[in-house]
Design a protein around this nucleic acid. Structure first.
Lengths: 349, 349
DNA sequence: CTGAAAGCGCTAACAA
DNA sequence: TTGTTAGCGCTTTCAG
């Protein structure tokens, strides 16, 4: 029962061989018990379980993986800094809790090349499935990848062939917000956005869907869309606000594409001594924690990161189990009216 | 039945064998080129590289791992919700960028059992090293683990034997804050903390170090420490503030152990119509993004998550390279004086 | 119901 | 300098 001389690193590791020897059974028996495979007698199960317990045995993940048995789900985020991202990640982890899968997260960065690189690294690790959150990557590449491994994307709007998608209904969310502002009396509403991720594609990322929702909602009400393209960041929001407020006829409301950008807008109003919402209504999208604080009280749109993450997991597990037709899971947004929006001052007429 | 008929192991994957065949050389030659090992002729290198390129070959990570060649660093966080955590994680990723290692992150949860479980899962994946951020785990277990795999902890204060530590000098940070408040004229300063992680141990986690720093600083100035133990959360801060303000002689300043708790304190002041800092100074620790906003402008202590993460990587790589003696890397905190702290109202005597 | 044995893709002796 | 080959720890036919 002495395993032959080991010479590799990690020589003190308990292997399935050790367990088999201790239990006085074959390795395949141990393997079967471990995997709950069919055809093991209760007493065999018991002996093995006891040996596993006693030796503190844990299966070698890489060895399993080599036989095509990965129980790892890879999650690629394009950064940990956005609270929505982390909420999604938390939702994924929680949804995976009761399953045999565990997730590993990589922060993939925002450049397409870096993201692709990190995702390939995940693939090299033979993940059982992939969740791509707001992938800033050519969709044909995703389609190709999805033919090899189950994939579900989050925040990518469009009809996929080989992977599933989970999206917030951002067109609706943007519409809710425009409705809110219009009902307050606003006519000139600026939206801050950022450049589309894909040049010519049937797919768009969240921010573009928000922008489209805004455009349509404005047009539907006979109002003229007014979009300023910067970036979803505090500074981006600030820049956009400066540009909007420098105009001859500044807007009465600024609808930032993201809460973080709305904070930049807020900073611009403070710089100029404008009161919110009396002089300018400022609203966002995402409902991150900071927005809920009493001193901020930003009117925004909430999309549950928890629900989003959990939906992605459900779809992914389905797909791992064999489903091949693409599915889409749509999360409903919810308007959160707080104190940064109000009726415009009737400044003229 | 097998649900995953799609990916028969070996069917569509390009292996090192394929590359060898395509290049007309042996597998070991390919392996050597891939690993930049000694003893390959330039022309061999070129042929192999060309074949790798053409076939789009990528090494199978699990197979490498089985030969003891992991290039994965595991990072265990006890949650993604704390901005400091994510900043550290970002720092780690960035510091790993130029190396051959890549990090994978697991959100380990806050219960010791769950954390241990997730860390073991990382170990099963044969990581080359481990970064444990604020591990809420029995240190003897960490010591034991660290004898098997290189480990560095973040936010764990104490002298380790088998692993390295990166800490913010939180005792100093707390002292800076007490100094600041005292110099403003405060005498009665309440500190909000949370229960120590370890019952009897030479090790303490950040929050306990902050508390110790506060206690010592108060005592050094002949002032009486006044600690309320709740939790580092908005609600925890709120509860602590309620208890402090309900006293016969309420404090003139509350030093929350974390910014997030300070926000709860702020909410309590709003509930009671207290002005900050006129009626009460409120300060925190961490300098998270929200605290920097103009509308919050929380006085706090900054500890760079970037520097912390990068420090952890440096130590870990050193240790992987062979260093055995434990090292400690101390990050200096910095006081950020903003608008929630000011002189106490001279209400009486 | 149980066990022997053949690999999974790769690295590292060891030979040539 | 290059190639051959024996495993790493596990799963999985396929016999017993």
């Amino acid at each position: 029962m002495t395993p032959r001389a080991r010479r590799t690193p990690g020589s003190d590791r308990t292997t399935i061989q050790d367990v088999a020897a201790a239990a006085g059974v074959s390795v395949s028996a141990v393997s079967k018990v471990l995997r709950d495979a069919y055809g093991v007698s209760p007493q065999m199960r018991e002996r093995v379980t006891a040996a596993v317990e006693e030796l503190g045995y844990r299966p070698h993940s890489a060895a399993r993986t080599m036989r095509g048995h990965s129980d790892t789900i890879g999650v690629a985020l394009n950064g940990l800094t956005s609270p929505f991202m982390t909420e999604v990640a938390t939702g994924i982890s929680e949804a995976l809790e009761p399953t045999r899968y565990q997730d590993i997260i990589v922060s993939a960065g925002s450049s397409p090349a870096a993201q692709q690189n990190r995702i390939e690294a995940l693939l090299d690790r033979q993940v059982a499935g992939l969740v791509l959150v707001a992938p800033w990557i050519d969709v044909t590449w995703i389609e190709k990848t999805a033919r090899t491994v189950p994939v579900v994307t989050i925040a990518l709007h469009g009809s996929s062939e080989n992977f599933d998608t989970v999206v917030d209904d951002e067109r609706l969310g943007a519409q809710l917000m425009v409705d809110h502002l219009v009902s307050l009396g606003h006519r000139h509403i600026v939206h801050t956005s950022m450049p589309p991720a894909f040049a010519d594609s049937a797919f768009v990322l969240s921010h573009t869907a928000r922008r489209q929702g805004y455009e349509k909602a404005m047009l539907d009400r006979g109002l003229e869309p007014d979009i300023i393209e910067t970036w979803y960041s505090e500074e981006g929001g600030y820049q956009a606000a400066v540009r909007a407020l420098d105009r001859d006829t500044p807007p009465t409301a600024i609808f930032a594409g993201a809460d973080i950008a709305a904070f930049g807008v807020l900073r611009a109003t403070e710089d100029r001594g404008l009161r919110v919402p009396e002089d300018l209504s400022v609203v966002g999208y995402d409902n991150i924690y900071t927005s809920t604080m009493n001193r901020i009280a930003l009117t925004t749109v909430d999309q549950s990161g928890q629900v989003t993450g959990a939906g992605a997991v459900r779809l992914l597990l389905d797909r791992i189990a064999g489903r091949a037709e693409p599915e889409e899971f749509v999360v409903s947004p919810q308007l959160k009216i707080r104190r940064t929006s109000g009726p415009p001052r009737s400044r003229n007429h």
